[in-house]
Design a protein around this nucleic acid. Structure first.
Lengths: 119, 119
DNA sequence: CTGAATCCCGAGTGATACTG
DNA sequence: CAGTATCACTCGGGATTCAG
């Protein structure tokens, strides 16, 4: 068990630190990323397959463009949800996969879908 | 214990239903609402005070306009996060408060802030 | 093959004025 | 008091083109 704040304490203090602009903003940024158009699709594919190349992701997510795939992947990388492994070959090859932290994200989606009454 | 899908089953099936457009969209819409600019502030105030009038919310959330407060409150009401009680008096009086479902939302924020390493 | 650069449109957000 | 109507602006998202 980590030494983190208990839920009871969190309920009392909720957003006391969260309400400070910077801290609040990081939660919002993260939620915005999760809600952005292609994020769930990407996480779904990576959760199913563990490792995928850029082109494979593009093929398995109908409608996505290179621009959106690339930019969404970079944002997910910034939050340490996914990781990138680049092979300096020609043609170039890049592999994407969920980090350990990223795999834990599914618990959050589980809670959200439960809250929404979907499951 | 509800008769809902277990987390193990969810991990296997994750987004199998979620990936269907309508179902996916409702999760995205909800996350978008949570990530929108004033939502956390509103939930914070209502979580602290249980009942607040429109004008009180406006006073306690610096910078928010009537337009944004009103539209955010209506979206939160649609998702059954908050509830509205209107008194047909002059001048008009409207009270907002968290629903039972809304109170459970704090668990999700708790999980998210934990995931982000904030707490 | 894996993106970056550019341009464009619509949605989210905001300022102001107005009403029952 | 509790909003709505309207207009303006910014930014996310998409189409296209191009490069290492």
């Amino acid at each position: 068990m980590e030494n983190r704040m208990t839920i009871e304490k969190y309920i009392q203090n909720q957003a006391i630190s969260d309400i400070e602009d910077n801290c609040l903003k990081s939660t919002q940024d993260f939620l915005k990323l999760l809600s952005s158009k292609w994020t769930i699709n990407i996480l779904y594919v990576l959760n199913k397959n563990s490792i995928k190349r850029f082109g494979e992701l593009k093929k398995e997510i109908p409608g996505i463009t290179s621009v959106m795939l690339s930019s969404t992947l970079r944002k997910l990388e910034k939050f340490d949800v996914i990781s990138r492994k680049q092979f300096n070959s020609i043609p170039p090859q890049v592999e994407y996969f969920l980090t350990e932290k990223g795999k834990k994200l599914i618990f959050i989606f589980y809670e959200i879908d439960t809250w929404l009454g979907k499951i």
